[in-house]
């Protein structure tokens, strides 16, 4: 589906995101596998809680990191995450 700022992403049913001190990173865990996330991927994914829409996620990120103009990056990442089945969209 086309992703807009109204889309609500949620980390997929078989996935879990958690902070791992030993790797100094967020990791995404799934059946018999894991991906180590870079900082921005981790920060976006942990906000994909099935409640916040993309607009809210962007606003939260921009406040937290005192940044602007993240919309294109966030949408591009959520697209990729959807292809990987890391997130479900509603």
């Amino acid at each position: 589906m086309a992703i807009t700022t109204a889309t609500v992403p949620k980390v997929g049913r078989n996935f879990r995101i958690q902070w791992e001190p030993a790797q100094d990173a967020y990791v995404l865990l799934y059946p018999e596998g894991m991906v180590k996330l870079n900082q921005s991927a981790g920060e976006i994914l942990k906000r994909c809680d099935g409640a916040a829409n993309i607009a809210a996620i962007i606003a939260d990120l921009e406040t937290t990191f005192n940044a602007q103009g993240l919309e294109a990056d966030v949408i591009a990442f959520v697209e990729l995450a959807e292809q990987q089945k890391w997130v479900d969209l509603t």
Binding site: Q18, A22, V27, L29
Partner: peptide
């Protein structure tokens, strides 16, 4: 404690 995270 060492960082294991996937457990089979």
């Amino acid at each position: 404690e060492l960082g294991s995270v996937q457990c089979g």
